[in-house]
Amino acid sequence: MTQQVLNAIFIGSIYALFAVGYTLVFGVLDVLNLAHSAVFMLGAVVTYSLVALHGMPFLPAAVIAILVCGLLGLLIEFVALRPLRRRNAPPISALISTIGLALIFVAIVEQATSGSLFSWLWQDGANSVRFPTGTVPNPTYHVGGLTIEGTKLGILIISVVLMLVLGYVMRFTQVGRALRAVAENRRAATLLGINVDRIFASTLFVSSALGGLAGLLFGLALSDISPYIGRDQVELKGLAVIVLGGMGSIPGAVLGGYLLGLIEVFAFVRFGSNVEAGVAFAALFLVLVLRPQGLFGARLRERL
């Protein structure tokens, strides 16, 4: 059981990292960015492509992939979000335009085979691949009867550190205050001289970079990289996480991520893998219906 809890914490870290980016955009822009899961997938795909197709060492490949994902965030902002804001379109239309971008991102990877237009990015079509063995050293530790894989431990540490950094930035820096100001009241922020468009663009960059990182860590640890890892593995679970934590709340997303990890592992142990798959959506549905402000309430919302 302790081993299972460890697994829960590890998978929870990835959920949390993914969901933090999701919720950041919702909190600041009031928009649900459904292309976030496609960016997650591209984080894994780009890293894999640089390592396996272009022979790059893992670390620089990961850094480049994260930056590429950040730039994709800007693409989302400029193509799918800003034109709608200019027209004062309601937030619900951004939901649809980001679905459009997600469809495009996934289809490009899915259709890429060797010899096709995007073969420099991906050659395996709809198949699932894994990083070549030895890409990242993966020592295993045995502590008191528990097995701890090095990569999973690393992922846990990276996630926790990043979320602490993000929390610090949001809470104690001028940029973080500006983000919270824009989230709360765009008009007031504008009158303070804050360039709201620039804040939005930075939010998308950071959110997508985090999403891409979550994706590449997922691909590394679960040895599963395919065009569908975003859509099938985290998109809707990420929604469940941010709904559990209260939409727009960063601490809520972190707690929600670990909570979902625990719930799933518990459901798996107790009822088996079939129930595990559905439990996130049952939770999503129930929380929205019973407590749409999230499990942890409005107090956490204050801290964006």
Binding site: L95, L236, A240, N274, V279, F281, A282, L284, F285
Partner: peptide, 29 residues
Amino acid sequence: LPVLRLRGVFLAIATIGFVEALRLGVILN
């Protein structure tokens, strides 16, 4: 009964939750 009290993005998400909960939670089990 419970879901239509929601609106906008929340209504959309709740109904998505229903679809997947039905498929993964009920049909597959």
